[in-house]
């Protein structure tokens, strides 16, 4: 093998190695990209309050049925909405109540994660108060009623008339 061939081979292998490293990072970059993608398509769950436009118009011509759902994963809590469904007009602000109760004899903290159906509801649902913004700590036997305040943006596509808002509580390890 001649000297020059070896040289260009090494140059090429370096390029390919760099490319490999770039692709490895790309794998990780898929994580924020997925989140970003979900955000623009409204699939993402942001655990932050939304800023609501004060001049939002209520669209009285439409009614949307909202079903409420609650789940608990891996902790001895009871968690339920105090009303199974509500009907609202887009643009109208509304408050719904959920209740949690700690059935165990230990203090436990949990974090609620919201999920919506249809998934793009996230984009149109503006929450300004929600128990999912912070972790919840319950003493043994303690019960708590918690509101969710939100409006549904009148921009929501016209063919949407039934939606589900679901929360799932996950246990938080102590110290988190």
């Amino acid at each position: 093998m001649t000297q020059s061939v070896t040289k260009i081979n090494i140059v090429m292998s370096k390029k390919l190695l760099i490319f490999t490293v770039v692709m490895f990072c790309f794998g990780y970059a898929l994580v924020p990209m997925y989140e970003k993608f979900c955000e623009v398509t409204g699939i993402n769950n942001l655990l932050q309050p939304d800023v609501v436009d004060k001049n939002i118009k209520v669209d009285m011509s439409r009614t949307i049925a909202i079903e409420l759902d609650a789940n608990v994963r891996g902790m001895p809590w009871q968690f339920k909405p105090l009303q199974s469904n509500v009907k609202i007009h887009p643009g109208e602000s509304i408050e719904v109540m959920y209740e949690i109760r700690n059935d165990s004899d230990q203090e436990i903290s949990g974090q609620a994660i919201p999920s919506y159906s249809p998934r793009f509801l996230e984009k149109y649902m503006k929450k300004f108060e929600c128990f999912c913004f912070t972790k919840q700590v319950l003493k043994p036997g303690e019960a708590r009623q918690m509101p969710v305040k939100f409006v549904i943006d009148p921009q929501i596509p016209v063919d949407v008339n039934t939606v589900t808002i679901s929360y799932t509580f996950f246990a938080l390890q102590p110290g988190k």
């Binding site: 390919l16 490319f19 490999t20 490293v21 770039v22 692709m23 490895f24 990072c25 790309f26 794998g27 990780y28 898929l30």
Partner: peptide, 11 residues
């Protein structure tokens, strides 16, 4: 292979 194998490694 060099395109997707590193992504699997990341995964």
């Amino acid at each position: 292979l060099v395109l997707v194998m590193p992504v699997l490694a990341g995964c």
